[in-house]
Design a binder for these strands. Structure first.
Length: 370
RNA sequence: GCGGGUAUAGUUUAACGGUAGAACAGCGGGUUGUGGUCCCGUUGGCCUGGGUUCAACUCCCAGUACUCGCC
């Protein structure tokens, strides 16, 4: 990763990350396409939003439609008609989110498919093989993501397994032509000592980049901030730093100030489907949440009746024509009648907000404001 | 015109001679390496007038509205 600017006000930085499908400006946000689609959007929509990279999921694509099918199709890029960079999560998060239907063993995770109940065994090597078959740009090592309320013993165990698996992933990756990048993941919960140890272990392996995992999984928000502030600056400076799974806009700003370069989160897309819209606003407005400088944002619920007679555009400043043309009243109506177009417009709105936020942040770092 | 039925929250409805429940709508909160419209909380109500009874949303009578059938 090439670093272009380092802030004097914080540990924030801007740069460029090269991948085999293009260069990405950092810090950046990845819209989530778990199963090979950003829900409700086409790749044309993603282009219009200025999307630079998306995130997909190894476990989900392995189960359906299967990595072999995608390989036959010419890889995930060709299969889903997206020719920018793709990062895949290894399946490690499903260790956490699908806790009821899996067993962690020494060599890997045993899953029972949430689709048909069939049993599957995901090993570090298998995860790498799947990600290679998918042909994506940035692979993630298989890790164990323990819940936020785990005790110290459980976190230690998760760290140990994560390290063992990281070594196996690294070894499997070394045997390939290394056209794809591989990132390692640091665990350790909210314990500084464990984070330090995990950092030391994982960074002993020369990964393409390093991620902080195991945050925003149920722990206290204050603890999350403390750990992030503590560990982020310790990550290797010349490599991309990825904070997995976060977050709210103010959390992204905070993390960027600690030196994080990469993010992904379901918030903009999921909340869009539930009718919550993100928008920039002035700091004085009711419900405004301050970000930095003079920038603030608020959310609103389009289903609320107050929108029924609001014939103003969804976002009159949007670069997306649809968002300038369709009114809030109409979007309210679309949600009431449960019409898919509503989901699409809301998703466009929220992703444009998140991607715009990152562009504003990049610009602020360049101008020395962040 | 005659006869029958129904009237409970904004809507659709439940129960009961002794504190009227629910769903949807409304309002508020939640969602963090995806839960495809989800989860949690919350504000609203017995058609009107008489009668019986210790006590009536409930039983009786009248009115009103709606509805079905007949002429």
């Amino acid at each position: 990763m090439q670093i272009l600017q380092k802030s004097k006000k914080s540990k924030a930085r801007t740069g460029k990350l090269k991948t085999s499908h293009g260069v990405i400006n950092t810090p950046f946000f990845m819209p989530i396409a778990t199963k090979g689609a950003v829900k409700n959007l086409s790749t044309y929509d993603l282009d219009e939003l200025g999307t630079e990279i998306i995130l997909a999921n190894t476990y989900h694509l392995y189960l359906q439609p299967g990595e072999k099918l995608i390989k036959k199709a010419g890889g995930l890029h060709k299969y889903m008609n997206w020719f920018g960079p793709i990062l895949t999560d290894s399946g490690g998060y499903q260790v956490f989110s699908l806790a009821k239907i899996r067993k962690i063993k020494q060599d890997g995770v045993e899953f029972q498919s949430h689709l048909d109940g069939s049993k599957h065994f995901l090993t570090p090597e298998k995860s790498i093989q799947i990600q290679q078959d998918l042909g994506i740009d940035i692979m993630m090592a298989l890790d164990v993501c323990p819940p936020g309320d785990s005790n110290q013993k459980e976190i230690i165990k998760a760290c140990d397994t994560t390290y063992e698996w990281a070594k196996k992933c690294f070894k499997a990756w070394q045997k390939t032509k290394k056209k794809q990048q591989l990132f390692g993941i640091i665990q350790g919960g909210i314990y500084k000592k464990l984070r330090d140890q995990s950092l030391k272990q994982i960074t002993s392996l020369d990964f393409s980049g390093y991620a902080i995992g195991g945050l925003a999984v149920g722990e206290d928000r204050k603890d999350m901030y403390k750990v992030l502030e503590y560990i982020a600056p310790k990550l290797p400076e010349n490599k991309p730093r990825y904070l997995m799974g976060l977050g709210r806009p103010e959390e992204l700003v905070f993390a960027i100030k600690q030196g994080i370069d990469m993010f992904d989160c379901v918030i903009p897309t999921r909340e869009a489907r539930h009718g919550r819209l993100y928008q920039f606003c002035t700091q004085r407005e009711k419900g405004a949440i301050k970000l930095f400088d003079n920038l603030a944002y608020k959310t609103s619920i389009i289903k609320n009746e107050k929108n029924k007679l609001d014939f103003s555009p969804i976002n009159n400043k949007s670069e997306v024509k649809l968002l300038r043309q369709y009114t809030k009243s109409y979007l309210h109506h679309l949600f009431k009648i449960q019409e898919g177009l509503g989901l699409r417009l809301a998703t466009l709105n929220n992703l444009e907000f998140y991607l715009d936020l990152m562009r504003k942040i990049q610009s602020a770092i360049r101008q020395g404001k962040l």
